[in-house]
Design a binder for these strands. Structure first.
Lengths: 224, 224
DNA sequence: GTCTATATTTTGATAGAC
DNA sequence: GTCTATCAAAATATAGAC
C-alpha cells in the first residue's frame, strides 16, 4: 500500500490523452497559436485537469519537445549501433529520419517551428538530444573518412542537407494541399520514397567525391 | 491640387516603418506570437496609426508575405532570363536563394513558419509567387535534360533539396546561438559560403547522374 | 483525480478629438 | 494623418467543492 487507496482511480490515461492532444495542437498552431482550452477539449478534459497534471503551458510544451527529440535521437543512435559499412549507416540514418517523420507527423512541424522561434522554448535537455543526432552522424562520417569512402565534410552541413529536405517535404503536405485548392489544379506530389531516394543519392554522391571532379571546374562562380 | 492641402504632411515613411517593424516581429514570433502593440512600439507609432494604414493584423501580415515571396520570385526569374548553360543557371539559382536569405533575414523564418502553419495565412497571390519559383527551376531542369546535361528529376524534389538546407541554415542561427549558451561550448558554425558550395555540389552531382552509378548498387535498401 | 466558476491579464480593434 | 482613451473578447491560470 504505497499510497493510492480512495480518491478516484488512477485515471485511464488522462495524462496521455492530454499529451497527445497537446502534441497535435502545438504542432498545428505553434506555442502561441495553441490554446489551452482547445487542448483540453481535444483531450476531453477541462482546463483544471490539465493544470493539475502540468505546471503550465510552457512545461507541457517542453515535455512534448523533449519526448519527440529524444525518440528521434534514440532511433538514430540505434542505426549506428546496428553497425555496417559507413555507406550503409549513412543511408540508414537518412531513412530513419524519414521514418520518424512518418511515425510522428508532428515532429517535422515542431522542428521547423523551434528553428523559426530561435529555440525560445527549448532547454538544455532538448539541445542535448539535438546534439546526439549530430554526434551520431559525425561518427558515421568520421568512419567513412577513415576507410576512404567519404571525402571530408562538415557534419552539420551534411546533416541539414539530409534533414532539411525531409522535414520540408513532410511538413509541407498541408500547405501543398491548401495551395492546390487556392490555385487548382493541385500539382501531383512526389512520394516520400522518391524524396528519400533523391536525398540518399545526393549525399552519397557528394561524399563519394565524384561530385564534379571532371566537369564544372569552377563551382560557386556565378556570383552575378 | 489633387487632394492633400492641409491635414498634416504625407508622413515621412510611417507606413514603411510599420512594415519594417511588422516584418521583424512576425519573423521572430510568428503570426500569433507577434503582438500589435509591439509592432506599433517598434515602428514608433501607436496602434490607431497602424490600423489606419492596414485593415487588421492579418492584412498586414499578408502584405509582408506577398512582398517577401514576390521579391524572391523576381530574383530567381532574373537568373533564368540572364541565360547561360543549364548548369550555370542551376548554380545561380542556388546562390540567388542564398543571397536573398541574407538580404532579407526575415525571409527564411517566415518560409519555415508558413510551412509549419500549413499556409493558414497565405492567399492565392502568395501561392502564385511560390509557383513562379518552382516554374523557373522546372524550366532550367527541362533545358538541362534536353541538352543531356541533367538526368530526369522531379523539380519539386530538386527544389526542396536546394532551398530547405539553405533556409534551415539561415534561420537556425539564433537557435544555434542559444544552444551554445545552454550547453557550452558553442560548436563553430560553418559559413554560408560553405553551405552554398555543398548544396551546389550535391545538386550538380545527382543531376549529372554520376551519383552512384558504379558503387552502392542497391540504394534505399537499409529498410531495417 | 476531476469538475464548475471565476479572477486577472493580455490583446485586437475602434471612437472621436485635433 | 496622428494621438488618447477605452471597449470587448480572448486566454492563462487558480479557488474550492466533490
Amino acid at each position: 500500500m504505497v499510497s493510492r487507496r480512495k480518491a478516484s482511480p488512477p485515471a485511464p490515461g488522462t495524462r496521455d490523452r492530454i499529451l497527445t492532444a497537446a502534441m497535435e495542437e502545438f504542432a498545428a498552431r505553434g506555442f502561441d497559436g495553441a490554446k489551452v482550452d482547445r487542448i483540453a477539449q481535444r483531450a476531453r478534459v477541462n482546463k483544471a485537469m490539465l493544470y493539475y497534471h502540468f505546471h503550465n503551458k510552457a512545461a507541457l510544451f517542453l515535455e512534448i519537445l523533449r519526448g519527440q527529440f529524444g525518440a528521434v535521437a534514440d532511433a538514430v543512435a540505434s542505426v549506428r549501433s546496428a553497425g555496417g559499412s559507413p555507406e550503409h549507416q549513412l543511408l540508414s540514418f537518412t531513412e530513419t529520419i524519414a521514418r520518424q517523420a512518418l511515425a510522428r507527423p508532428q515532429f517535422p512541424h515542431m522542428w521547423l517551428r523551434e528553428i523559426a522561434d530561435g529555440g525560445r522554448h527549448v532547454d538544455a535537455s532538448v539541445i542535448g538530444e539535438f546534439r546526439r543526432v549530430l554526434a551520431t552522424l559525425g561518427a558515421i562520417l568520421a568512419d567513412g573518412q577513415r576507410t576512404g569512402d567519404f571525402v571530408k565534410a562538415d557534419p552539420f552541413i551534411v546533416q541539414i542537407s539530409i534533414v532539411a529536405p525531409l522535414m520540408f517535404f513532410a511538413a509541407s503536405a498541408p500547405l501543398r494541399e491548401r495551395a492546390g485548392k487556392l490555385i487548382p489544379p493541385k500539382p501531383p506530389s512526389p512520394s516520400l520514397e522518391d524524396v528519400i531516394q533523391h536525398v540518399q543519392a545526393s549525399v552519397l554522391s557528394v561524399l563519394s567525391g565524384n561530385a564534379t571532379t571532371s566537369r564544372a571546374p569552377k563551382l560557386r562562380r556565378p556570383s552575378r
